[in-house]
Write a protein that binds this DNA or RNA. Structure first.
Lengths: 261, 261
DNA sequence: TTGCGTGGAA
DNA sequence: TTCCACGCAA
């Protein structure tokens, strides 16, 4: 049995916006830790890992682990029916194959309730090794989104080159080429959490599909900040904080060899 | 001979937006009372009744009754050529088979004139009995629009259940089900005219096509408030005030039996 | 609130 | 292929 009440319901709306274009359906795993989801995208190229910790909810009750097979498309549609300041409550029981979703406006003068049919979804629980990465970059999420979007005009791939001094994004294609370089310590609006911070063990140089990175930046609304964890031989991790305590992480393997593709 | 000058020309623009998706062509009846229109929608399912009282215009002159067969699609296109604060004048004579439409900007520095060809349209003047309804609900038009749009994600039909305490809209379909309940007296923004007010003679429970209701809410821009008149056995009436003195009313029969459709 | 661009239907 | 309607952005 799950009961989880989220004061700021809009967070879940944003989470679904950040998932639904990549993944049509997935299992939400509920246990005492909170809600989590791990799934490959529809094309089985990228991996998405979501965690919303129990502490994000109040109350949060989940006495037994539950795996809820959810059509993210449908859940997203239902969440769009909530108002911008609604309180959201999720309920599920072991017996019933629906997820109950409730939105309450102020003073509960307006209450909307929905039941989403659950599905059986094969889950392929990929363990993600908790690795040390060659480089960790903390930067303004809007700026990262802008860079990916801008470079996608030029080509299909972006090459990320990162040293202690700076991170450089570059792309090239038929119409030309472009590169955007941000120095360690660069600030935006003088907000210090938006400072670009680069931690380097080993410099990296790797190439990724821009289409996927642009897709990952659908999560930009969730956090002002994005964290990039990069190694030469491992998938890049693009992480956004969710609701202070949780996260959504996207994993994408670098392109190898043939950099024209 | 008709001559009618509307200070706030944008009202007629909105009226046409509220009509044109439902009805392609109809007769505008002009007499000393004002302008009125009654027509079934293209699919002959819903009935629309429009009245703009003579007092809405200044001046309003109509010495003899006229029935103007108008392509609402075309009239809407012409009205889109007016500016947001233009004064609008309609003129028609008994002899000429065109409607003359004039837009004047402030100080008449800009005058646009159009002539719309009139058409012969068979009119089927359905008398609408002035009935007492089981339930009358007054609510925020934007909220009603939102509810209809939201529920249309789930299914084709909405069931409206209304008692003294509250009005409940519910729908269900392949992806699940949902219900939105608003209590008598619920307020929006503390504006008192937007308070949900429910007057009940007999509680009602009836089901309607969401596609049509969503279409009716095209009139939302005309008024902050919508009035629903509902009876178990009669078509629902969805009414928006037009220009203080007039109205646009939509009539839609409930679905009967087969509630799966 | 209006205009633009995209997606769906005829 | 064209037109219309809807959703998103300015």
């Amino acid at each position: 049995m799950l009961e989880a009440r989220l004061q700021d319901g809009v967070v879940l709306k944003k989470v679904l916006d950040a998932l639904k274009d990549l993944i049509n359906e997935a299992n939400f795993d509920c246990n005492e830790t909170g809600l989590s989801l791990q799934a490959m995208d529809n094309a089985h190229v990228a991996l998405v890992s979501l965690l919303i910790k129990a502490e994000s909810f109040d109350p949060f009750r989940c006495d037994r682990s539950l795996s809820l097979g959810i059509s993210l498309t449908s859940l997203s549609k239902i969440l769009k029916c909530s108002g911008p300041s609604d309180v959201l409550t999720l309920k599920a029981s072991d017996q019933i194959d629906t997820l109950h979703i409730m939105f309450e406006g102020k003073d509960s003068e307006r209450v909307s309730e929905f039941d989403l049919k659950l599905m059986d979804i094969d889950s392929e629980h990929l363990g993600i090794p908790d690795t040390e990465y060659d480089v960790c970059v903390n930067m303004c999420s809007l700026e990262f989104q802008r860079i990916c979007r801008d470079l996608s005009v030029l080509g299909e791939s972006v090459t990320i080159e990162c040293s202690k001094e700076s991170i450089k994004f570059s792309a090239n294609g038929d119409i030309g080429s472009g590169a955007i370089q941000i120095k360690q310590g660069a600030t935006i609006d003088e907000k210090k959490e938006l400072t670009t911070t680069i931690n380097v063990n080993t410099p990296v140089l790797a190439t990724y599909s821009l289409k996927y990175l642009v897709n990952f930046t659908k999560a930009t609304g969730l956090s002002d900040v994005v964290n990039l964890s990069i190694s030469n031989e491992l998938p890049i991790v693009v992480e956004y904080k969710v609701s202070e305590l949780g996260y959504i992480r996207y994993f994408l393997a670098p392109k190898i060899g043939d950099d024209e593709e």
